[in-house]
Design a protein around this nucleic acid. Structure first.
Lengths: 128, 128
DNA sequence: ACCGTAGTACGGCAGATGTCAAACTACGAT
DNA sequence: ATCGTAGTTTGACATCTGCCGTACTACGGT
């Protein structure tokens, strides 16, 4: 092959493809660790609450720089919590609910519920 | 009083007393973080599985030094996951089930169940 | 009084983590 | 072809984390 093209992907969904752990490779400790960061937990909660199946990274307005955002999304992806696909110039993020529920039934819901209760309890609700 | 005695505690249960977060001070992120370490998760699982309400630190034979063990138990205590009381020369550890269940219903059980499933799935069972 | 056992505190070390800014790549639109 | 938007990469930095060994304290038993 003469200088392989830089984007020989399926291109159906977009262009580049990201590496994700297979369902069987998802580790509980990694998931818990991924969810133990306030920023990432907030992201996951927002994804779970959203009607959309997939949200672009920029749909969340996190109080950190772009590079930090990239970093957090990678942690979530590598832990197997979210799935990411490129779609044009954006990168869409989706919760891997099916995989998580299959591996750890009730865990994600328990965490989401716990987060909601805590926010409620602490009056964490930020204005507007 | 001339030179306050070094052990003016209740002494009913033992002597010294440890600082624990009150139920309302327990933070979900801290709990998840505490549980995201394999060593600590194992400890919590063992406590949950045990018939005893409280186990001494030395009841667990962790593959790490004493200081590291102390460190892990402190993380668990400060996160509000375990309760520790001195009893003579030993320090007894108990899961704060009631507090955790009240704050985050189903969370602890979901994590314990997830851990059991993962162990099962990966054949993590160490011999003897 | 003395010793042994259980655990703590201190200091150190290597590696992970959260954060940023700046430079870069990929894609869509003009 | 050019530009802007979205996200990545790199390198840096401070902090945290897990780990250790050694020295220390607290308690119970002899």
């Amino acid at each position: 092959m003469t200088a392989a093209a830089p984007h020989t992907e399926t291109a159906a969904t977009g262009g580049r493809t990201l590496a994700h752990p297979a369902r069987t490779e998802i580790r509980l400790e990694a998931v818990l660790h991924a969810l133990s960061d306030p920023m990432r937990l907030a992201v996951v909660r927002e994804m779970a609450a959203s009607a959309e199946a997939e949200l672009s990274c920029s749909a969340f307005d996190l109080p950190v720089s772009k590079s930090t955002t990239t970093h957090h999304f990678r942690v979530l992806r590598e832990a197997g919590v979210v799935e990411q696909v490129y779609r044009g110039t954006a990168k869409l993020n989706g919760l891997r609910r099916a995989d998580l529920d299959a591996l750890f039934p009730g865990l994600l819901d328990a965490v989401l519920d716990a987060a909601a209760r805590q926010e409620d309890r602490l009056g964490d609700s930020r204005p507007t």
